[in-house]
Design a protein around this nucleic acid. Structure first.
Length: 678
DNA sequence: CAAGTCACTTAGAAGCCGAATC
DNA sequence: GATTCGGCTTCTAAGTGACTTG
């Protein structure tokens, strides 16, 4: 543990160094040859300090000064105080003299710009993600428990006892019997093929037709089981809860450098049937059980290396501090690698998140130039350049995803911008009174449908016609383009720029602009929150974040409506009472009746407020029917915009972010002031 | 430069749980 | 006390994009 302390002291020395670097920035004055480079350097200096600031702020749960139960040591005292941010005058030397004449607004803006950062230089040298990493390894899925004797499986109407392996796979199917999946041809075919692989040779020769398999008894058994779980006594439930907490405490955390950090997914995915989204060619395939022998452990050389379960070995233990994962294994459906990584509240995720928004903010400065550029490129002599420019226009205007190529037959047929095919768009020279309308209809990520009719500029329209000439519906729309070409181009336009940055940028800028537009200073808090949700919704619509309308939607809407009706009646009653109290007071003219009037007045007001709140809620819910706000909130909206908005209007942050979200955005909550501008 | 590998972010659905309601 | 409902958490699939290899 003393080593932890050592390394953290080193860290502090590093911080000192950075400060010195900052102090020596006068040098820049003399070098005016390469302005861009110089500017980058300035920004780099800013980074390290900001990052330290960040690291100090954003890593709950913090380690206390005393070693805790787990023997984790705290970081030294100094670490627990945030480093001061660089003051403006620290680098005033190389600012042009003009600065004095600038008005305060400009100065403020400049200050914000200075806080922006270049990211190639991190707290650690080139690509190093941590210095110390210790964890307990993953938690494996519980072993299979064979069914009790009385739970039967029937084949062709006759009882059949399955071998344990075959039975396990059968239960996976039985558990999904109510799901639409099990009616799908591909699912059944894939399942049956993989199931047969697990059978003994006798089973294989008997069970030749899935339709003759009867899983209903098994299915009923599982339903009864889950029912029984619900009916458990408080004590039993408590016991399970405690066991889960123990597991979390033991395996749910790791130490990365000087912080104890929450792990996101410390449990290994249990075996089961693969559930792809949309029309997935591999749905129903058997996801095999992961064993310690499949597992690669990643941790520090000098940490306590997690022990594999008794009688087992890890596939490999490595010490790669250029990556952030703790555990990995290769999954058998797509052959891709799965990882165990840290929670979004961790330093390493938070920093990255912050970095993402800083890149998007940098795009703000370049975006006008880039837009002019692609407009020019629509006229280019080169087909490749035109396609690139039109694709970029879509990515920018419609917030489409980049659209990497995918291997045919391995995944559901979905596309993004660069992989759009001719069949995915229709061109309307005129539609509903608008000129040059492009009708998009395709399946995007997760097989979510993107449907949109967009009027575009004439040049774009003409280009699209050109791109579609002599092509079949299944041909690529942008046949000279892929994401790699596009991203290379973007990289030239701005360092760190890729297609996905446009989504982040447009989402965040839309939120900021919508908040400005929709917030009415005179509104009360619930109404302001409605405005926030509407701004959020505008972004979700832009990014096409949809959800299946909840099954209970209609019902819950009706419930809410009846609540509103009841409240309205209550209000009418209260108003009547107020009226009669007023009349009464007019006649009697005594103190007591005056007081009654006052209290009735208050009651009316209170009910009015409650009614309004309910009505707002109803509007909000109705508008949210098929739109999911969560994804944009979590992944696209610079949290500092929301924090600033809350501060500006005195809205408690809890109304916008729940506990988990506050943990994830701790850095932003600490950092952003009321006047933050994206 | 095409294909493959790897790391990491983004995504909606399912499951769970506690508060509200009957 | 039982049931319902909605929000939060968990789960893991499905993307992006950097990098490597042939």
């Amino acid at each position: 543990c003393s080593e932890h302390k050592d390394s953290s002291e080193k860290k502090h020395k590093d911080k000192e160094k950075t400060k010195h670097k900052d102090g020596s920035s006068e040098k820049h004055k003399d070098k005016h040859k390469d302005k861009d480079k110089e500017k980058r350097k300035e920004e780099k200096v800013g980074v390290s300090l900001e990052l330290c600031f960040f690291a100090c702020f954003c890593s709950p749960p913090r380690i206390k000064d005393e070693p805790d139960d787990d023997g984790f040591y705290a970081s030294p005292k100094e670490d627990s105080k945030p480093l001061k941010r660089p003051r403006e005058d620290d680098d005033a030397d190389y600012k042009p003299k003009k600065i004095k004449t600038e008005d305060i607004k400009k100065a403020k803006k400049r200050k914000q710009e200075e806080e922006e950062v270049m990211w190639e230089e991190e707290r650690y040298p080139e690509g190093i993600k941590w210095k110390f990493l210790e964890h307990k390894g993953p938690v494996f899925a519980p072993p299979y428990e064979p069914l009790p004797e009385n739970v039967k499986f029937y084949y062709d109407g006759k009882v059949m006892k399955l071998s344990t392996k075959a039975e396990e796979v059968a239960t996976f199917f039985a558990k999904m019997l109510d799901h639409e999946y099990t009616t799908k041809e591909i699912f059944r075919k894939n399942f049956f093929k993989d199931w047969r692989k697990e059978m003994t040779s006798e089973e294989k020769s008997t069970i030749t037709n899935l339709s003759k398999c009867d899983f209903t008894h098994m299915s009923q058994y599982f339903k009864a089981q889950s029912e029984a779980r619900k009916q458990m006594s408080k004590e039993e439930k408590q016991k399970i809860k405690e066991e889960n907490e123990r597991l979390l405490k033991e395996y749910g955390y790791c130490v990365m450098d000087n912080h104890k950090e929450r792990i996101a997914n410390f449990k290994i995915e249990p075996p089961g049937l693969f559930r792809g989204r949309g029309n997935h060619p591999k749905m129903g395939m058997l996801k095999r059980r992961i064993m310690p022998e499949d597992i690669i452990i990643n941790c520090s050389k000098d940490s306590k290396i997690p022990a594999p379960p008794p009688g087992h070995k890890w596939k490999e233990v490595r010490h790669d501090n250029k990556v952030t994962w703790l555990v990995s294994w290769t999954e058998n459906i797509q052959g891709s690698i799965k990882y165990i990584m840290l929670n979004p509240s961790s330093r390493i995720k938070g920093e990255k998140d912050w970095q993402k928004y800083e890149t998007a903010r940098r795009l703000k400065k370049f975006v006008d130039k880039i837009r002019n550029q692609y407009r020019e490129d629509w006229k280019s002599k080169e087909m490749k350049v035109r396609q690139r420019a039109v694709a970029l226009y879509f990515i920018d205007k419609l917030a489409l995803r980049a659209g990497n190529e995918k291997e045919e037959g391995e995944t559901a047929d979905t596309v993004g911008c660069c992989s759009l095919r001719v069949e995915h768009i229709k061109l309307h020279p005129e539609l509903d009174g608008q000129e040059y309308v492009v009708e998009f209809d395709f399946l995007g990520k997760d097989s979510i449908r993107y449907y949109n009719k967009v009027p575009v500029e004439k040049r774009v329209f003409k280009n699209l016609q050109l791109f579609m000439e002599n092509k079949q519906p299944e041909d690529d729309l942008f046949d000279r383009l892929n994401t790699s070409i596009l991203n290379k181009h973007l990289q030239d336009l701005m360092e760190g720029l890729t297609a996905k940055v446009f989504r982040t940028y447009n989402a965040s800028i839309t939120l900021q602009q919508q908040l400005k537009e929709l917030t009415n200073p005179d509104d009360n808090i619930p109404a302001k929150i409605l405005s926030y949700n509407r701004a959020n919704r505008a972004v979700a619509i832009l990014c096409n974040h949809q959800r299946a309308p909840p099954k209970t939607f209609e019902k819950s809407m009706m419930n809410l409506q009846s609540k509103i009706d009841a409240k309205k009646e209550q209000l009418a009653d209260a108003r009547r009472e107020l009226k009669s109290a007023k009349a009464d007071a007019k006649v009697r003219r005594d103190e007591k009746s005056k007081k009654t009037v006052e209290s009735k007045k208050k009651a009316v007001q209170r009910i009015e407020e409650q009614l309004m709140k309910l009505e707002v809620q109803a509007t909000d819910r109705e508008e949210n029917k098929q739109i999911a706000l969560g994804t944009s909130k979590l992944n696209y909206l610079d949290p500092r915009i929301s924090v600033a908005w809350c501060k500006k209007w005195g809205i408690p942050i809890e109304k916008i972010y729940n506990k988990t979200q506050r943990e994830k955005f701790a850095w932003a909550i600490d950092m952003a002031e009321e006047d933050y501008e994206f």
